[in-house]
Design a protein around this nucleic acid. Sequence first.
DNA 1: CAATACACTTAGCAATATGTAG
DNA 2: CTACATATTGCTAAGTGTATTG
Length: 756
Amino acid sequence: MSGDHSHSEDQVDGGSRFNDSHKHKDKYKEKEHKHKDHKKDKERDKSKHGNSDHKDSSDKKHRDKEKMKHKDGSTDKYKDKHKEKRKEEKMKSFDGKVKKEKENGFASPHVKSEPEDDIYHSPKHEKSLKRERDDDNDSEFKPKKIKTEIKTENDKRAKKRKPDEDTKSKKTKNKKGEVADGKKKAKKEPEEKWKWWEEERYTDGSKWKFLEHKGPVFAPPYEPLPSNVKFYYDGKHMKLSPGAEEVATFFAKMLDHEYTTKDIFRKNFFKDWRKEMTAEEKAKLTDLKKCDFSEMSDYFKAQSEARKAMTKDEKLKIKAENERLLQEYGFCIMDNHKERIANFRIEPPGLFRGRGDHPKMGMLKRRIRPQDIIINCSKDSEHPKPPPGTKWKEVRHDNKVTWLVSWTENIQGSIKYIMLNPSSRIKGEKDWQKYETARRLKKCVDRIRNQYREDWKSKEMRIRQRAVALYFIDKLALRAGNEKEEGETADTVGCCSLRVEHIKLYPENDGQEYVVEFDFLGKDSIRYYNKVPVEKRVFKNLQLFMENKEPDDDLFDRLNTSVLNKHLQELMDGLTAKVFRTYNASITLQQQLKELTSGEDNVPAKILSYNRANRAVAILCNHQRAPPKTFEKSMQNLQTKIDAKRGQLSDAKRDLKSAKADAKIRRDEKSKKTVETKKKAVQRIEEQLMKLEVQATDREENKQIALGTSKLNYLDPRISVAWCKKWGIPVEKIYNKTQREKFAWAIDMAEDDYEF
DNA sequence: CAATACACTTAGCAATATGTAG
DNA sequence: CTACATATTGCTAAGTGTATTG
């Protein structure tokens, strides 16, 4: 870890900036909004600064500039965009249809390899290797053993696999045992956890050989309002057609939300609503302001009250029905194992609410029907049946992808998928692989850092830009920043898409030199605010990049994510911008744990240390949350508890003292015992008090920081597991049930000496 | 290239479940 | 038990990144 040099300090340092950021944010909050909707706080606050000072500095760096190959003065980029998403289907031809009888509601997967061979004839070579435990630095996430794989001749995509996975091919058939075994497990019995991480993985680019599922669960059909719930237009009652009424109810349900007051939201809604109206309705309803949805709104509120007030029995019934649905639709069979599906319900229709300042907010998200749905499953499985009287759009058998169901969503035209749960083999393998890639970066990060530092001096503008951007990505854990189409989404940026208006340069600030102030909205319109001192060369480069540009010009006009990633790919196999986030997050956790954990601490104190380490990462990655609505109150409650405990403690101490005095006089066994008991009591209370205090600290520090995202997505779980083992902390203290399921592989394989 | 299509990860908040104090 | 606080799960938008297409 020596290689992580000062970098780590920067990052931890970054912590203080976060507080600044929040102060800033809070101040802003007070100033600008009353805010009933905390979401709003995050929404764009275009700072007025940044416009003024990019010009004045322009003469300074002539020399710098002369050296550069500025192709032309223009700041154009690849900026034009227009998009129409539509996609065509492609069918792959597979022949051979073998249906197995069902078991457990699923056609049973072949239990031996023979049938497979029948189905997918012409196996070519393949390989697969047994994975090995990765406890040591050197291990790679790579198959170590060759496995049989089957390629279909007409499978066009067979070539897709990664080069490194392709390198050698050998034919080894060793599947049977596993298969037979797996089949048993796929049966009714709960199945002892399957350790997929001890098995070989596919190396031919296929994601599965057998896939069977029941298809999606559709949103419940619209239930028209009872006739006593009326809609009024311009004060007059008006009965809406079912189609128009449904859309109206979507709006009515959101009436309390602030965004129904937003112009864009209303405009988009009204436009889409009108599309659902009959001709007469369309003619009559011309002004949203004259629409009165209040009865509808009240009705839904009453409904939700009624739901809350349901008897236990009724609630149980609903629960049971949900459970039934889960059992029927919530699982699939993939390669001999029953696996949990993540999202088997189709998204119900409603009004789109993007995050931040979204140009499409309020648009109608339409209802998805069977004919919109593409099913993906294996040919030799029992295909899911569409609801009676309907048809799927398509049933395909593409084992180069992991999804079971897809459809195209109408707001952005993007594709939505039903996929497996994070606990599934297919997700877990990928996750594991992600951390292995980050660990490989660890081995060469010094080299890469040296290289980009060199590149700050390059005579080519694009290389300098690339190097400065990479520096930000590395040092500040910024996201890559793909370009987005204007007008389609909220205006947010990442590193490569930063604009001049998003940074401000201070040759000197608060006693520090070369300070860069970042202020922009990132993913989910979460504000990133940070002031960081940077190296002089970086600073000078930034001045250069900003020269003669307007605030809304791209800072890195000769760079985009694709160029950057191509470069990274050359530096290390599998390296992309986001690997830096994973790497820096994980290495920071490891370092912080090392630094903060103290052997003498008791369990709660150690856990506080863990949370603090986790927090350092969350800060680095800018994972924020709105302070919980009940935050103040809950802090207060905790404080009350603490005070009470303190009282208890002094009482107990007093008791102890008198018991001691008593014992001194009486000198008998009984009083000695009393002293011991009292001592114990004091100790216990002290411990409880400490626990509460620690809890208070933890909570306060966590006010607007979300730990979950980094824990789930950026921190190599083996670091946490190893830490738990090393200090004798039960892993349940760190990971809840879902998390333990997701990280089962890590919990099983990491030893106390694991090093990221 | 550059635009587009696609697949899959990452993200915060809302809804729901669970725990706990009264 | 209820009421409330807190933890967990669900939801789905919004990113990243690669392959395909023009």
